[in-house]
């Protein structure tokens, strides 16, 4: 399933971590943290409001931002259009999180988690309409399965 690559984009050799390619370890860690994010989102949403969750989620992510700034040696991109899109992206991400926490408050994590993870369906559709991007067979199959799952979970 996994294409083993031990070289980064610059062509540097990357050592394996306990027999696994480093990229795979990082990808699995990403999956792990996002899985925990969904779980903690449910626990938190049962206790406080969506807005309160969003306030502290924003604060919790700030150390990561600082880490990125240091990693870039304080040379952050300032391309006007790129920055505008990125900030707008953050606004929509945060609004989505507010809705996500509200959904978690009234629903179960085992349903809200999978349903909200279907957002690429809209991205694929928008990319098709706005950016005139090609849609692959896998994405079309994904769209069909996404619609089927929403219908089933709404029953």
């Amino acid at each position: 399933m996994f294409e083993m690559s031990n070289r980064n984009k610059r062509g540097d050799l990357i050592p394996n971590v306990k027999g696994l390619p480093k990229w795979l370890v990082y990808a699995l860690l990403s999956l792990l943290w996002w899985g925990i994010f969904g779980f903690l989102g449910k626990i938190g949403s049962d206790r406080v409001s969506a807005a309160q969750m969003q306030i502290f989620l924003t604060i919790g992510a700030l150390p990561l931002v600082l880490g990125c700034i240091i990693r870039l040696d304080f040379k952050i991109a300032t391309h006007k259009l790129g920055v505008t899109y990125a900030i707008l992206m953050g606004v929509f991400a945060a609004l989505g999180l507010l809705a996500f926490f509200a959904a978690m408050k009234s629903g179960t994590a085992s349903l809200v988690g999978p349903v909200t993870s279907l957002y690429p369906a809209l991205t694929v559709a928008l990319a098709l309409i706005v950016l005139k991007e090609k849609v692959g067979k896998a994405q079309i199959l994904g769209l069909i399965l996404a619609i089927a799952s929403i219908v089933i979970l709404s029953l």
Binding site: G82, F92, L97, L131
Partner: peptide, 23 residues
């Protein structure tokens, strides 16, 4: 209610995905 809010999240994150492609 959870379906309504979930759809709202999907719409916001779907637009986010498009903006990500652009940025």
């Amino acid at each position: 209610e959870w379906v309504t809010f979930s759809i709202a999240a999907v719409v916001c994150w779907g637009i986010m995905g498009l903006l990500q492609k652009l940025t």
